[in-house]
Amino acid sequence: MTNCVTLQLKKRGCEVTMISYKPFYNTLRQKGFTEYGLIFKQGLSANTIHRIKKGEAITTKTLDTLCSILECKVEDIIVYEADE
């Protein structure tokens, strides 16, 4: 696996990358935020950050919250990567 921050789906025994959180960390850095700040200053749960790091699913409500905190668009947090 080349990127540890991707959401994966099992398909016929193979891993297929679909959603990537690659843009999240770029946006976080550009906006001057840290994971610590999101958790302890903005009230985001540590579990949410853990899920993003592990490439696991987060809710659209969480996406909405992140967009509000970071003042960004959804595509600044996640990107769809088609199976090639």
Rank of each mutant, 00 (worst) to 15 (best):
Y36T: 04
V16M: 12
L44V: 15
I39N: 12
R51S: 06
K11H: 11
S45F: 05
Y25T: 00
C4D: 15
N47K: 06
K11V: 10
T27N: 04
K11N: 08
V74A: 15
L7W: 11
T65H: 06
V79W: 00
A57T: 03
L44F: 14
G55W: 00
V74S: 14
R51N: 11
L38V: 05
H50D: 08
M1D: 06
I39M: 13
L66E: 08
V16R: 11
Y36K: 10
T59N: 11
I69M: 05
E75W: 11
V79Q: 12
C72P: 04
T60F: 05
V79C: 09
F40Y: 14
C67N: 02
K31M: 02
K53P: 09
G37E: 15
C72I: 01
E71V: 06
P23A: 02
E56N: 15
I39D: 14
K73F: 03
V5C: 08
T59F: 13
G55E: 00
I19D: 11
G55D: 02
F24Y: 13
T60L: 09
E71T: 06
N47A: 09
T6Q: 12
A46W: 00
K53Y: 09
L70K: 07
S45E: 07
E75S: 14
K10M: 12
I19N: 08
I52G: 03
A57E: 07
T34A: 08
I39S: 12
F24S: 04
I78R: 08
L28T: 08
Y80I: 08
L44C: 10
G32L: 02
T6P: 01
G37A: 05
T48A: 09
V5S: 11
I69T: 04
C72K: 05
K11P: 00
T60A: 03
T62M: 12
G55I: 00
H50L: 06
T27A: 02
M18K: 10
K53Q: 15
K53W: 08
V79P: 00
N47D: 06
A46S: 05
S20N: 07
C72R: 01
G13N: 14
I39K: 14
I52R: 07
Y36N: 13
L7I: 03
L66N: 03
K73N: 15
G13L: 11
L44S: 03
R29S: 11
E81Y: 00
A82H: 15
K22E: 14
K41P: 00
S20K: 07
E75M: 03
D83I: 10
H50V: 01
V16P: 06
R12W: 03
L70R: 07
S68A: 13
A57V: 02
E35P: 03
A46F: 00
A82V: 11
V5I: 06
E35W: 04
A46V: 01
I39L: 12
S45I: 04
K73A: 13
K61T: 12
Y25L: 04
I19F: 08
L70N: 09
D76W: 02
E84Q: 13
